[in-house]
């Protein structure tokens, strides 16, 4: 750096630069096609008739667009012996996800607030224990949970699934709020305490108003996790209370009758729509949630 002339800046000719840019964009385009192809195939297949699927090919556009498959997928496809389509299960997933997301976010916010701002002996150990719980393979709790749900009389019910999702979501929601609140100066809490404000008062008037971004991150993370869950759904539900992912898998693997690939694809898109929508609308927060648990800081 002391002698600028000794290593002059390499200049590429404008043509080389243009060619390199061109190759770069081609590469980016090819990868974009790789990621988009399955979605494209799903959508086009769902709009084709079965005859066209049998004769046509995967990447061609439908010759004749038909929404029959969508109608069947929504309200007529068979998940084993029942043939009510995805609708009831879509509703189940909403009934499971909405309360579970809200409860786990509220508890996570309070936990995070305590761990970050009201440190007491053992609070850090609690946090470490909780954090570790995020990483266990859930197979290790599946059997005892089945027994406990039975003892509580909520096995195979929607409240049972809400309960399970709240319990195993707490680690992440607490982590989100703890990491967010830790960056708020503790002098704020101390000053408020001096002024006579109590635990909940400080949370309510100081912390909660600052929390909107992290609430969004937590809600989106939990919603995506719970909506996309399959393991708990398939283990702890019974006919009638299954979430949408289990219903989709049953429709696709149901062996009765003709294999209707267009219905399978329509059902898959229906199952994917809510989380895709969330991703498109609030992608920034989705990525923040994904990276929150994995990046130091």
């Amino acid at each position: 750096m002391t002698d600028m002339s000794y290593a002059p800046t390499r200049t590429q000719s404008p043509t080389t630069k243009l060619v390199l840019r061109f190759i770069l964009y081609i590469l980016l385009g090819v990868f974009a096609l790789f990621y988009l192809m399955p979605l494209f195939v799903m959508i086009t297949t769902s709009l084709k008739s079965l005859d066209e699927i049998r004769t046509g090919d995967l990447v061609s556009l439908p010759r004749e667009v038909t929404f029959d498959a969508w109608r069947t997928a929504w309200s007529g496809a068979c998940t084993g012996i029942q043939c009510e389509g995805m609708r009831p299960y879509f509703l189940n997933s909403l009934l499971i996800a909405i309360p579970a997301v809200l409860i786990s976010t509220i508890i996570g916010a309070l936990n995070g607030y305590v761990v970050a701002q009201w440190k007491f002996k053992g609070a850090n150990i609690f946090f470490a224990l909780l954090l570790f719980g995020c990483f266990i393979p859930f197979q290790v709790v599946l059997l005892p949970m089945a027994i406990v749900l039975g003892k509580l009389g909520i096995s195979g019910t929607i409240p049972g699934l809400i309960f399970v999702h709240v319990i195993y979501g707490l680690g992440f929601t607490t982590l989100f709020f703890r990491n967010y609140y830790v960056s708020i100066p503790s002098e704020l809490t101390k000053a408020a305490k001096v002024d006579g404000a109590g635990f909940f008062r400080i949370f309510w008037s100081i912390f909660l108003p600052l929390s909107l971004p992290i609430i969004v991150v937590s809600v989106i993370w939990q919603f995506t996790q719970i909506w996309n869950d399959f393991l708990f759904g398939v283990s702890f539900s019974q006919a009638g209370t299954q979430p949408v992912t289990v219903a989709l898998n049953n429709i696709v693997n149901s062996t009765t009758g003709v294999k209707e690939y267009n219905v399978d694809m329509a059902a898959a898109i229906i199952a994917a729509l809510p989380t895709l929508l969330v991703y498109v609308v609030a992608g920034k927060y989705f990525i923040r949630g994904l990276t929150a648990g994995s990046v130091k800081g």
Partner: peptide, 12 residues
């Protein structure tokens, strides 16, 4: 485009 599959369920 590169990231959207992460929003999908593994079942999908």
């Amino acid at each position: 485009i590169y990231l959207y599959p992460m929003a999908l369920s593994m079942i999908v």
